[in-house]
């Protein structure tokens, strides 16, 4: 069953085309990693899919009930406590204060946040804790689809790995589908069922590969060898690690 269908998506900023003719399908319960060189329009695509941006061309067909989203920066409200930040989507949905508190606590437990941390403000939390709060906020509505926009790029290697494990565990437990934008092939190969590679100029999806094995059950050796194979033998991944600073806004 299809959870998300993007067809013929195109977008332009101030007349400069950044996306054109992008087609992508995500099945229910499936995690797709969207990779591509920096500046190829991955973030724009996921913003369009999540309804933040209106696409210039094409259609977004969402067949899921609710979605959550995790951004590259935590994007927490500095004036609100961790608990209020986690409960924010519930507030938008018009759920009462009592129920919000209880559900925020449940979501915090899912990402191993301590109850004592919930009364702290974002400035009092470390970078990793803030991103945990952001993930709890994305999960608080029990979404069946989650958008991740390079969520762990700013974290150090050890912390990134723990966050990846957290997402893998949460996805395994809740069975949500996800579109996970990253430029780290190792991250993609750990978390996803399938990798979609974006064209360096944003002109559609260049190709897709199904990653052997199940997320969370692949050993580090499997992941490493798989990525090495992609980079050395598969022409699809030739431009993934290209960086063109001029295109980075």
């Amino acid at each position: 069953m299809t959870a998300l269908l993007l067809s013929g998506i195109g977008h332009a900023y101030l007349g400069r085309t950044v996306l054109d003719g992008v087609d992508l399908t995500v099945s229910a319960g499936e995690i797709i990693a969207l990779v591509g060189p920096s500046g190829c329009g991955k973030s724009t695509l996921v913003h369009i899919a999540a309804g933040i941006l209106e696409p210039l061309r094409g259609r977004v067909l969402a067949r899921y009930a609710r979605h959550g989203m995790v951004f590259q920066e935590p994007r927490l409200m500095p004036w609100a406590t961790a608990r209020e930040n986690i409960a924010y989507p519930l507030r938008i949905a018009g759920i009462g204060r009592k129920a919000r508190q209880a559900r925020a606590l449940a979501a915090a437990r899912r990402v191993s946040l301590d109850e004592s941390d919930l009364e702290k403000f974002p400035v009092e939390l470390s970078g990793g804790m803030r991103q945990r709060v952001a993930i709890a906020r994305a999960l608080v509505l029990n979404p069946d689809f989650v958008f991740f926009d390079e969520p762990f790029t700013a974290l150090d290697v050890a912390l990134r790995r723990r966050m990846q494990d957290l997402v893998i565990a949460a996805a395994g437990e809740a069975g949500f589908a996800a579109l996970f934008v990253t430029h780290d092939l190792f991250e993609a190969a750990r978390i996803a069922h399938r990798i979609a590679v974006m064209d360096p100029r944003g002109w559609g999806i260049s190709g897709e590969r199904v990653i052997p094995g199940v997320p969370g059950r692949r050993s580090d050796r499997d992941v490493f060898e798989q990525v090495a194979r992609y980079l050395s033998e598969d022409a699809l991944f030739r431009h993934v690690n290209d960086v063109d600073e001029r295109r980075l806004a």
Binding site: H47, A50, G51, I52, H67, G68, M69, F71, E73, R75, M77, Y88, P89, I92, A93, L141, F147
Partner: peptide, 10 residues
């Protein structure tokens, strides 16, 4: 950024 976040949550 916060505006976009809120928009993403509807």
């Amino acid at each position: 950024g916060l505006d976009d976040m809120a928009r993403a949550f509807g």
